[in-house]
Design a protein around this nucleic acid. Sequence first.
DNA 1: ATTTCATTTTTTCTCGAGATTTACACTTGA
DNA 2: TCAAGTGTAAATCTCGAGAAAAAATGAAAT
Lengths: 240, 240
Amino acid sequence: MNDANVLAETGEMQEPKTLVEAAYKQLRRDIIEGVHVPGEKLRVEHLREHYDVGAGTLREALLLLVTDALVVAQGQRGFRVAPISVADFEDITRTRVLLETEALRQSISRGNDEWEASVVAAFHRLSRAEQKLADHDAGTTEEWERRNRAFHEALIAACPSRWIRHFQTILYQQSERYRRISLFRQPIARDIHAEHQALFDATIARDVTRASSILTEHILRTLDAIKRMPPDFFNGKQNH
Amino acid sequence: MNDANVLAETGEMQEPKTLVEAAYKQLRRDIIEGVHVPGEKLRVEHLREHYDVGAGTLREALLLLVTDALVVAQGQRGFRVAPISVADFEDITRTRVLLETEALRQSISRGNDEWEASVVAAFHRLSRAEQKLADHDAGTTEEWERRNRAFHEALIAACPSRWIRHFQTILYQQSERYRRISLFRQPIARDIHAEHQALFDATIARDVTRASSILTEHILRTLDAIKRMPPDFFNGKQNH
DNA sequence: ATTTCATTTTTTCTCGAGATTTACACTTGA
DNA sequence: TCAAGTGTAAATCTCGAGAAAAAATGAAAT
């Protein structure tokens, strides 16, 4: 499995050992944050300057991003940022519900005390970040995003299936791109903390059915938010 | 999505446009067929000769195989064929059941006449291959493998979720490695054609429940076969 | 015999330049 | 005005060589 994705909130990710990995991480960050917009052509010779690596090295970094489905490669026609669309996000969301609820089910039924403790810790960290976010502290969205991911990862950490967790990581990363859009221009108010609290309570209570349905609703709510956005938002932003 | 994987039985795959793609396809074939055994170190300089490409080109091909999880890359320590184990195959199988039954459900409920026709055609081709296989014709296992994949792909082709189909493709490819083992040294006799026939009948009859349960059993049966194999089969074959 | 350390060998990683292909602008002709 | 073709510019793909790191070898010491 691609361990480069596994990034715990506490255990900081290992320093990238090669230039390829460093460029990969920077590029991934830039794509998720929208520095490179969906559909944009990624010309190796131009990116070379900005990321300060050789052409071959950058090509390898782009190839790694193909694994995350953040970049699409077309033979003899270079690389592009993977496009986005409402239909794609609906697909991502529904597939994520399928995998993540199953993972949560298994996690709840097989998780031990240590797992429970890590869930408590992750929820606590997330709550603090949400508090800061409510107080309009500056520059905390980055932190919230990290802790939100850590919380969701902690919930399903006791799921024994490496493949489900692997696919879940990819889908979560994909949805992160969309979430960055919906969070800032949110048409409907969401009490995200209340959702997390309910999800946390049901999980600790080992109530599989309730936890699953809350998680499903939680994930689907972002889909609603995206669907309510101006329909032309996904067009016209993609170069070429 | 990685379209390089999509390989229809009828519409032959496009010729690889670049050397990287050609090397990728050859390497993938060799790994699935066991020419490069699980866990084997893949030294670029050695493979260079055999695949007749430059070092950088071969590195890129290996990076593409990371996407399929057939190769694992470790920074500054090169590439290796992804290892195999009974636990991994159990994981692959159960995840595949989860995704493929869901895909089949959606495919059956949304498939139109054209889809139905392609399923009939794929089943017919597979039946012929199984006939030849029963007659002990030489060199037909390759053809059977292609048509078996085509049949399974046709079944879920009407599933609208690109992501489920994408993950299913990866898992099917993974399981192919294991199936190559169990098919030749089969400890229990399986009437695979009867299983396919039942699966086909239920699908055409649009019986979602029955088709799902048959598919589940069908996939799990190979897991049984692997589990019955000598437990040390997965050890001692992996270089270093 | 085993551990430690330095040396040698192997392998991986990285870069820039040349060859091939694609994309683009322009001209020509209907 | 539009279509097709031509030539130029740009981008991709590919390779081999040098730098950096890891693995292997062997010598010395406990």
